[in-house]
Design a protein around this nucleic acid. Structure first.
Lengths: 123, 123
DNA sequence: TGTCAACCTCGACACATGTCGAAACCAGCT
DNA sequence: AGCTGGTTTCGACATGTGTCGAGGTTGACA
């Protein structure tokens, strides 16, 4: 066990949340776990994909509705969706011929709570 | 004016906030403006730098306190700080021999509110 | 005014990322 | 069983990113 401090996003979600970003230095393991999620949101296409998935009616949306919404090739959209999936932000489910994507609201809330800085300035 | 739809982070902060990510497809200009901020947070070192700056006593912290906190060269830390600066997340101020960095709480709150989904489910 | 320290910029390199076309895979239909 | 349409994976290429060492700029201090 050379890397006992490894932490996953799911671990952090399980703890309900970690400390907000203005509550002291973030531990390196948490930073390593969280950075990929923010990085995944660091692209305009993925940000729009994420918003479409997160706001989808019924909590899920078909890839066949996502792909034509951009002027990008199918493989490129698939690549971005994979990035979101590997970052733990969305999950995919195949049903019949189509694949449906759903957002993970807990992870989104985790990230949001991290930045939220709920008026902490104690003004 | 070939690109009339260009939007800056400051514009978005000025509007107090844009719609949360689960409230419909994010407009492309907003996505283009927001993505660099998330991308800047998409690195473990910058996430830790950000947390140290945002939680600094007095709202600011000296570079001379940041650099020795990582096993990275000075130029590398400077590069990451520049990335955070260009993303609009922090600002720098020179005072005497040292440079002090401060976080922009409004931008952090904007990003957080975007993801925060503040219990909107009304459960 | 000269010297020193802190910080940034520049140039360079290895590696990761965004994008595409071609091909493989998977489920449904005839 | 074979064909068809939808989605992902593979291979390739141009571009962007993280890191460093060397050098420049700024301000303090003797």
């Amino acid at each position: 066990m050379s890397k006992p401090a490894e932490v996953t996003l799911t671990d952090l979600v399980g703890q309900d949340c970690c400390a907000p970003i203005n509550a002291g230095r973030m531990p390196a393991p948490a930073a390593v776990a969280l950075a990929p999620a923010f990085k995944a949101l660091g692209d305009p296409v993925r940000l729009q994909l994420m918003s479409m998935i997160a706001s989808a009616d019924g909590g899920e949306i078909c890839v066949c509705d996502l792909t034509p919404a951009f002027e990008l090739s199918g493989p490129t959209i698939s690549h971005h969706l994979r990035t979101l999936r590997e970052a733990g932000l969305v999950s995919a489910e195949r049903r019949g011929s189509w694949v449906y994507y759903q957002a993970d609201p807990l992870v989104l809330r985790l990230l949001g709570g991290l930045l939220g800085t709920p008026v902490a300035v104690a003004g």
